[in-house]
Design a protein around this nucleic acid. Sequence first.
RNA 1: GGGCGGUUAGCUCAGCCCGGUUAGAGCACCUGCUUUACACGCAGGGGGUCACAGGUUCGAAUCCUGUACCGCCCACCA
Length: 872
Amino acid sequence: MAEMSKRYDAAAAQERWDSFWADNGTFTAGQRPDAETFTVMIPPPNVTSILHMGHALNGTVQDVLVRWQRMLGKDVLWLPGTDHAGIATQAVVEKKIWREQKKTIKELGREAFLKEVWDWKDHYGNAILGQTRALGCSCDWTRTAFTMDENLSRAVRVSFVQLWEKGLIYRGHRMVNWDCVLQSAIGDDEIEEKETKGHLWHFNYPLEDGSGNMTVATTRPETMLGDTAVAVHPDDERYKAVVGKNVRLPLMDRLIPIIADESVEMEFGTGAVKVTPGHDFADNERGQRHSLPVLNIMNKDGTLNEEAGAYAGLPREEARKKVVADLDAQGFLEKVEDYTMRLPLSDRSKSVIEPLVSEQWFVKMEGLAAPAIQAVKDGTLKFVPERWTKVYLDWLENVRDWCISRQLWWGHQIPVWYDEDGVPAASLDDLEIGAAHPKTGKPIVRRDEDVLDTWASSWLWPFSTLGWPDQTDDLARFYPTQFLSTAREIIYLWVARMVMAGYEFLGQCPFDTVYMHATVLDGQGRRMSKSLGNGIDPNEMIEQYGADAVRFTLALLTTEGQDVKLAPTKFELGRNFMNKIWNSARFVLMSVPEGSKPSDGNADPSDDLADRWILSRLNATTVELTASLGAYRYHDSAQTIYAFVWNDFCDWCLEASKLRLQAGDAACASTLLHVLDRIVHLIQPFAPYLAAELAEALGHTEPIALASWPDAGARVEDAEADFGRLQETISAIRKIRNENRVDDKTDIDACIKTPAPELLVAQSELIQRLARVGTFTATADMARPGLCATEVRGSDEIYVPLEGLIDIGEERARKEKELEKARAFAASIEKKLGNENFVSRAKPEVVARERERLVEAQEKIAKLEQALADLG
RNA sequence: GGGCGGUUAGCUCAGCCCGGUUAGAGCACCUGCUUUACACGCAGGGGGUCACAGGUUCGAAUCCUGUACCGCCCACCA
């Protein structure tokens, strides 16, 4: 084989294997027609920009699982793709056009604008898929999807028409979040709330009968122009007498009623609230309960309309000033307080959201929610970690109708046409202008200009990507999927809706398990954002540390907690580990005799202690790793393999092998090859590039990614116990050398007084090598050989003669400290055992164990006391 | 206002569900090391009254109650 370099060259490995996998279609699904399937749909990233670290983490979470399942023999489909992200993408492209051409999109025109967006989509969509590949994600690239692909668009249209025909889609005047800059309704998810210092104005509305005033408080004075009532709490003694009376609305000179409604907080402000059903969500609901008229005083661009009388035409900010000034001038202003409130801002345009009643399309949700609720209740759908189930249920159980129309250009245009009377019809095929309306027969005059909310395509993702509405082979074979990993922010927006769509259109839950991955934060625990400039670019990290290192590090940091705090230097851990594995392989491959073959492991066990021990540890590791992967415990999985490779294999097994390899021990070579081969299998889900390189070096001709996950044999208890004793002995001798600052060039000897010398005598060569001692002896009646340092390990006493090398004072101090600890420990056990309740109530095996430990501790104390006495 | 998470070594975090070795890891720190795989390394070491207060228990980092602080989510205090 070619000589391996001293360092793992991640970049070279990535380049080789990325194209190898692509060229060979290694991850194309359907190659195991007789096997069980395992399907994962990637949460399609928005084509707004390139991927961030959260995507890299999610990619790792999915790929580790997917690669493991593939090794378990499944026919795996991991389907990649991207989302057109309607409003978000339109907003970024709109900004770009303004920046570069100083044109609004209206000036540019719909067609030219859409061409710009498609260009943007091509660029970022490709970048995203490229990044996903660069991370090593084993997606089926032949099935890559985009939410506005022709077949996915058809799925959207079919789903719309089906819901329409069931009567689940309706057009309504409903209150929506209105973005006055984008001039579109926007979803709840497209809003961010910002703490803002404002004012709370108190106004006096005079009672019609002249008997006094109702004082109301508001943060938005201009809306008073649209007031249609004043509300108080029905139990509020202060106002019981006035409920039912009217007040005269200042400035507008209208009479409006005083109503009683339980939604009013008596303690807040004056306990009386002005009701503006046209411009406030809460007031809108109050208005509905009391059949109040809805007055809309605002145009779509945020200026006031003719309903605002004298204020018509003013932008809302100016109207506010003028209303306050006029009320003040006319003596209606009671007082102004400073007030901090949460102002809703549009994510995209940063303008203040205006609750506005407008005509929109809605989907009735209640019926759709029922099976989605049932799915978690009967265990069809599981959340990991489980606590997110509650979040999901809380939303579904209080679900509101879904406003699905958006006044945008980028997206799926609503498939609704109107006749000359404005009667709508939904249609699978485009209707020509002038064609007959399918219901009324009158000529079609226009198509609805709006597009659908972006989630109206993503909620179909688990099956539209497989060809639905056609009954394709892929759909039959790969739906439903098994696993979804996503961010908790979109439990409602996406996860819940996918479940609803799955039941509605296919009668099946779209996935078994929803895994909520951690949120990636910066080193200080802040969210990564462009404005803070604290993002860590996964591309840069891959370039600097390698994809395997990035993946392994992310897997290790992925615990079930809420967040992952990440600093770039964390990836050193992964890089160092990859390099460690690489070098361990390099050592094995350069050290084993030509023509060595791996052993059969458990089937053909070597009788050497080190071999039996490492096999036992390998088996234990395989069992643990398999269990933690099955439980989606990424941290544990990564930790398990890290500890095995580094501590067991490298620190002990390889070091112990050096002696035997020099002696040309064939069993040793075979064992090392076997263990290394297993490590390559076990690390493959985490570090696919490294695994591919090493598998090749080990002579595999088939891709390791398609190999079988190893079966674990049994543990070998006696080998673990015996080798453990050797490790203790060797560490003890090393400790003596280090503590007494005896350099490596100075020879030391070691002798051990032990009731069971056989093992140590048999392994004395190994002890000599690893502990760097010259003469080594072990007998049952060993006498302390003059002035020496002592370590106690169980029943063994380890003596290292240090005449002339030892600082007796320091050694005494160390032993005294140790003795003190041992005495304290023994005392604590004695106390426990002296407790009648403990002895009678604790489990017998716990009590027995404590008795043993006490004997051990007392033995240790005696030995330490003797050692101290012998130090003189 | 409601809900959820967190508080363990200087730092970042495991462990807690299912109570029982003298609470672990990585980084950082200290000592020593061109040991022929790896300094992205090796050997050894120091460092924690497990946020606080109660309770349950023979026994609590682990279970229960409360408090404080940090973070997230939901909600119609205008």
